[in-house]
């Protein structure tokens, strides 16, 4: 297990370095100049040059990259003040430390993703198991067609409809907002309820279908039949034997989904006007804000890589044939 962790974490580290280098290069290859944006309407070449100089954009790319990476480890000093390690730089746009901005936005994204995850896993796996257990019946067909309908919907379509129905016309609920759980647990819960459910509905569909088909496949496995031949009851065999095997494909997509969500649930955040990592990413790219873009990219990539390690460890936990190492 330790070997596995060391090996995986070190390879994750290499991947992060590659991603950062790649993002850096892409940024400079893009034909847009961040100085133009910062300079405003009455801009002269000289003014732009001063801005470039201030942002450090006139140094060679390699040097800029080196400064950036060194900052992550050692911290850096900027004209706006000292930036402690891990320093992801200062935003071109807001002059705020990128790390602080991300730490500020992270709780919302974490709340949104993890809350949604609990809902869509419970609903999705539950519906999938029920459909598999009652394969071919009306229940199965209803659940299957419902999941097909929802999986073909989009958050930006469903979101406004739900908002319109529950918030604007009836006033049953308040507009989605984020309050830290430490300040007001109830407000945190009610504020995110609508985004959770809308997001969960769409993910649920996918998990229902996956869990159903994977479960049906497992129920046809020979070892499941053997367990029945030993006299074990149908529910026992269903949960102890078949379910365990059916979790492997689910864990796979769950790892990918969770990693992506933690890196910023862009559509959900935009739809419900919530300021999380996803929104931050969109702002960073539209403003050609190199340090912010780098920061958001690296955080997202870190989540995805970490989820990957967890998924692989989960495989080994579920299936003893999988060896870590």
């Amino acid at each position: 297990m330790l070997r596995f962790l060391i090996r995986r974490l070190s390879s994750a580290f290499v991947i992060l370095i590659l991603i950062s280098a790649f993002t850096f290069l892409i940024f400079f290859a893009a034909p847009r100049d961040p100085a133009v944006l910062a300079c405003g309407k009455n801009c002269t070449e000289a003014a732009k040059d001063i801005i470039r100089d201030n942002l450090g954009l006139n140094d060679p790319i390699a040097q800029q990259y080196w400064e950036f990476m060194r900052g992550i480890v050692m911290g850096r000093d900027f004209s706006v003040g000292r930036c402690d390690a891990p320093c992801l730089g200062v935003s071109f746009n807001t002059d705020l430390m990128v790390w602080d901005t991300i730490v500020d936005r992270l709780p919302l994204t974490l709340s949104l993703s993890l809350g949604g995850l609990v809902i869509f896993l419970t609903l999705g796996l539950g519906a999938g198991l029920m459909a598999a257990a009652k394969k071919g019946t009306v229940t199965d067909k209803t659940l299957s067609s419902m999941s097909l309908v929802f999986s073909s919907m989009q958050i930006y379509f469903l979101g406004p409809i739900v908002l319109g129905a529950l918030v604007f016309s009836s006033g049953i609920m308040e507009s989605p907002r984020y309050v830290p759980i430490t300040e007001d647990p109830l407000g945190w819960f009610t504020g995110l309820l609508i985004p959770w459910f809308v997001m969960a509905l769409i993910f649920t569909a996918q998990y229902t279908r996956m869990s159903r088909s994977s479960m049906i496949e497992q129920l046809q496995e020979e070892h499941v039949r053997t367990a029945r031949a030993k006299g074990m009851s149908r529910p026992y065999v269903f949960f102890r034997y078949a379910w365990r095997g059916s979790l492997i494909p689910i864990v796979t997509i769950l790892g990918m989904d969770l990693g992506a969500l933690l890196g910023g649930a862009i559509v959900t955040e935009m739809t419900f006007s919530l300021a999380g990592i996803g929104r931050l990413a969109v702002d960073a790219v539209t403003n050609i804000d190199l340090p912010l873009t780098m920061g958001v990219m690296l955080i997202g990539a870190t989540f995805i890589l970490m989820c990957n390690v967890v998924v692989d460890a989960a495989y080994a936990y579920i299936d003893p044939r999988v060896r870590l190492g």
Binding site: A227, G245, P320
Partner: peptide, 10 residues
């Protein structure tokens, strides 16, 4: 017939 598939791997 096939003890590999007939025994649960888990």
């Amino acid at each position: 017939q096939d003890p590999l598939t007939a025994l649960s791997p888990f």
